[in-house]
Write a protein that binds this DNA or RNA. Structure first.
Lengths: 335, 335
DNA sequence: TTGAAAGCGCTAACAC
DNA sequence: GTGTTAGCGCTTTCAA
């Protein structure tokens, strides 16, 4: 591997000139530039970015903490992050945490050893270990799609989760449903609570209320959606409509409902959240809330970049709009 | 951020001793070790890995080129890569290429600027730009889940694709199917050709042959599966069974078949490939080929590591076993 | 067992 | 416009 000295030697200039030619060509004379570039070519020179980064004290990499990379919603968010990162000359380090604190701490720790200039946390936990908290205070971090529990020090890029849940409640109510079930995500998650609150709020606005027995806990997985539906549909009070807090759980729920001999939506309406691509291909296709996943990723990265560069943020909270997509899995209540 | 000099000063030893204490504690006396570790603690010192890596000339990162991160099969492969990478002290840089050469070249190029010590290519294209080929020759790379077209310089971790397709053909034949349709992946892909050949081979073994009119081209996406099924099911000869070369296309195909008023599997059997989690939750659940995705990722990373370290490989070709999972989407032919 | 010092490849301040 | 050089934080050889 040839280095900058080699190129300097070949072109008969100093290493500083080579460096300048590469970073800011305007600052060297055309003749010199040409000679240097020719030497670069001949030497097959590629700058050692490890050295450049070290020299500049930055890694130009960001660590993305994702609870579950197999979730297509997060895949889309990551795509958005990656595109924006590439535009800005950053690379993306992937940390699939499975929602486990030990993994989060491991990956978050990479920002403390200068392997990443900043963090994007897609989960709701403060990712650093307690013992690292002091050091971590100066690490640029943004939260996307979630909010870190009881910690408003970090900028957030999120959906209007409450509004989305309200819209979904309204959708059900307009279809005549009154016995509404919910399969939530993990209750530690602030956005799960937002959705729950929004849903409830809308019900109350219509003189209804959420029956606590019809709220079951899920984990954003296909199988937990199936389990949740099983609980709801075999309970003493059977809901006529079920709101699952992500599409995977909704797909699991539809599967389970059918397994129990019910028709969707004739016997029970089921809706999801996220609008992952699979949701168009279920039978029936899934009513859901569209989240602008890529945009969320992009905003998160752009926000993080500003923090890294010490630029001021217009706002520490970016709330993106949702869209309710009504498809075949919800219909008028047939009670 | 405190550095190694600060720790040296605090503990009254040289930076060399601090370095040794951290990398190989046995080589310093117990008393010194204790003092140094105490100073590390007090200073809140974390080694700057950017500097360490630069000094060692390695990034301890690998770049993973993935054609489509939203494909759950690849997510699982990446999980396997990441776990293995973590075990080996490596980090994972993500390069979502969308199958586009320009993206591949961009990300692959990062290995030429020392940002990655090696590459894992999950697609079938030689990822470097032509002009980089000379330099790239010394870049450690392994191919997983795919084989680079006409290039056997790189180790491969793959499935017994031909065997899997044979098994699927046998499955159909045993169920009495004779008019067999296929929705392939991109034909440039060697593994697609392997599967096609394997399928055909098995048919011939039973005195049958593949009707070229029943082979349509897909792109491993939900919508291309639906399109493929549409072509097949509306053609002059309608197959009684369709083999889709991944689960997403199969899910698209099932959706399309139902849309056209057909019952699956009563009117047409449909099978997939990969055994992604969604395949258990379709209606009917999907007959498919299970690929050990995480294991493939792990092996790829372990193999790459050996190349990076200059260790000999036992074999440059690792072929992993498949398993045919028969579910509800295939049944006896009802012609 | 420990310390002094060179060096990894690049950038940038400073001098000309 | 260009060159000289210090320095980024660490590892590692060489001496002691």
């Amino acid at each position: 591997m040839s280095n900058i000295r080699e190129v300097a030697r070949r072109s008969g200039v100093s290493v500083a000139t080579v460096s300048r030619t590469l970073k800011d060509p305007q600052r060297v004379s055309p003749q010199t530039r040409e000679r240097v570039l020719k030497a670069v070519e001949e030497a097959g020179y590629r700058p050692n970015l490890l050295a450049r980064n070290f020299s500049s004290g930055k890694s130009f990499a960001v660590m993305v903490l994702v609870p579950n990379i197999a979730n297509p919603f997060f895949s889309k968010v990551i795509r958005g992050i990656e595109k924006a990162a590439q535009d800005q000359g950053y690379s993306v380090l992937l940390g699939d945490t499975k929602g486990e604190p030990t993994h989060e701490q491991f990956y978050a720790g990479m920002a403390l050893t200068n392997q990443a200039d900043g963090l994007i946390q897609l989960d709701s936990r403060y990712p650093f270990a307690d013992k690292d908290a002091a050091l971590a205070a100066s690490v640029p971090m943004v939260n996307a799609c979630e909010r870190i529990v009881e910690d408003d020090r970090y900028p957030v890029v999120e959906l209007d989760n409450s509004g989305a849940a309200q819209a979904m409640a309204r959708h059900f109510i307009e279809l005549g449903h009154r016995r509404l079930g919910i399969v939530t995500g993990p209750l530690e998650s602030p956005i799960v609570r937002d959705r729950l609150a929004g849903f409830d709020e809308e019900l109350q606005r219509h003189g209804l209320e959420l029956n606590p027995n019809l709220v079951v806990n899920g984990e954003f997985t296909l199988s937990s959606g199936a389990e949740g539906a099983h609980k709801l549909l075999s309970g003493p009070i059977v809901p006529s409509a079920i709101f699952c807090m992500n599409d995977e759980m909704a797909i699991g729920a539809i599967h389970q409902a059918k397994k129990m001999g019910l028709q969707v939506p004739a016997d029970v309406s089921i809706a999801g959240f996220d609008n992952i691509e699979f949701s168009q291909f279920t039978d029936p296709s899934l009513t859901t809330i569209d989240q602008p996943a890529e945009t969320m990723g992009r905003y998160a990265m752009e926000t993080l970049r500003k923090i890294i560069d010490g630029k001021p943020l217009k706002s520490s909270r970016t709330i993106l709009p949702f869209e309710l997509i009504a498809r075949g899995s919800t219909s008028r209540c047939h009670d």
